[in-house]
Simulated scan of single mutants.
Amino acid sequence: MAGNRQLPLDLLLVAGLVILTDIFVLVPVLSGSFLRTILGLLLVLFLPGYALTGALLPAKKDLEGIERALLSLGLSIAIVPLMGLGMNYTDWGIREVPVLAGLSIFTLIMCGATYYRRLQLPDAEAFEVPFKASVLALKAELLEGHGSGVDRAFSILLIILVLASIGSLAYVIGNPKEGEAFTEFYILGPEGMAENYPTNYTPGDSGTVMVGIANHEHRTVDYTMELRLENSPLPLPENQKYVSLEDNTSWKEPVTFTPPLEGKNMKLEFLLFNDTEKNIPYRNVHLWINVTKET
């Protein structure tokens, strides 16, 4: 047994990243930062698996560095869905804070188990990430004149390219491109299903359909819905509805109407206008209806 030993830097770094992720997710002022996305990806895709790998394979001889990293990634991808599946059967459910707490606690416990397992091994056999040796080697390569000037120039250029790539990736993750702006507009039958639409009427009969609008325009939109039969507006007040929706919100309500004309295969249109174009329908759906006297 090796006795007491300083907490390894890699475990300190993992624990620090877990705590930092919790802070960036839970503190409202920080939750909008792109760093939250980067830290969240690390917590989901790497840190739990790295801590578990350390607890299962604490010795240097168990795995090489690149194999350890790949196993950490694979285990994390397995751990997160299993944890979500377990939480789905609890009162907490699969929500952000419970999942964050579960992953954080699991990772920190595994860090403790890793430290304990490494303590059982001699210093020379316990796995550690050679941060200090890597820094010293890099310093010797770049600053102390080892190797030719061309080699040092390529090394510096490589470091700049790696840092630029990491910065670009962080920017892309933190500032995702907005998807296409669009609005969903649809009608359903009276039971809220895409069936049993009321299409046959006698004069004076009323019909009801469920109308739905979902805003994905990346902004708040004021919508106006208008009903027309054979291109003629239905009488007010059932002719028009006004709906204001914030981005990524929806509206669905029953709409009742009374066809004012008699005829067969008449086109009943539901026209949706947005706040930027008042004369040309932005979206439209329709039904073919019959209004006939009973014989």
Rank of each mutant, 00 (worst) to 15 (best):
M193K: 13
S165P: 13
L169I: 12
L261M: 14
T220V: 05
L11S: 12
L57A: 15
T21D: 13
R68Q: 07
E191V: 10
M193D: 10
E128Y: 14
L169V: 15
P281M: 06
M210R: 00
A126C: 07
L143S: 11
E195P: 02
E128R: 15
G112M: 08
L100E: 03
V221I: 08
L229H: 08
L43V: 06
Y89G: 09
H146N: 13
A133N: 09
I38V: 15
E67G: 13
L119S: 14
P259R: 04
V97E: 02
Y115A: 05
M193H: 05
S33I: 01
V14A: 02
T90V: 03
P48A: 12
P203T: 12
L47T: 00
P122A: 11
F270P: 15
L30Y: 00
N290L: 03
E128V: 12
S148W: 00
H216K: 09
G3S: 13
D22Q: 15
N239P: 08
M266Q: 10
V29R: 12
T256S: 15
L11D: 02
V162E: 09
T208G: 09
N279V: 06
L158I: 05
L234G: 11
P98C: 03
L70H: 05
E125C: 03
R68S: 01
K264M: 14
N248I: 04
R118T: 00
A153I: 11
V44H: 13
S155N: 11
T224H: 13
S31A: 14
M83D: 02
P237M: 08
S134E: 06
N4A: 13
V14M: 10
R152S: 13
L85W: 08
I160S: 09
R68D: 08
V211A: 06
M1C: 12
T258Q: 07
S244E: 15
K241R: 00
V25L: 01
W251S: 01
F34T: 11
G74V: 07
A78T: 08
L26P: 15
E64I: 14
P259S: 05
D10C: 03
F46P: 01
A113H: 09
S168M: 13
A153N: 08
L227V: 11
I79R: 07
G145T: 03
D222I: 10
K61L: 07
P237C: 11
I94H: 10
E191Y: 01
A113M: 13
K61E: 10
N88G: 14
L9T: 09
G65V: 08
R68W: 02
F34E: 00
Y115M: 00
L17F: 04
I66W: 12
M266Y: 01
A170I: 11
M83C: 09
D123L: 08
Q6Y: 00
M225Q: 00
L103Y: 07
N274Y: 04
R95M: 04
A170K: 04
P237G: 12
S232A: 14
C111Q: 03
L42I: 04
A15V: 11
N239K: 08
R228N: 00
S250M: 13
D205H: 11
I166V: 11
A126K: 07
G263R: 00
S33C: 06
L26W: 00
Y186A: 08
N274F: 02
E178L: 10
T208Y: 02
L12H: 05
L7Y: 10
L71K: 04
I213N: 02
L47Q: 01
L20D: 01
R283C: 06
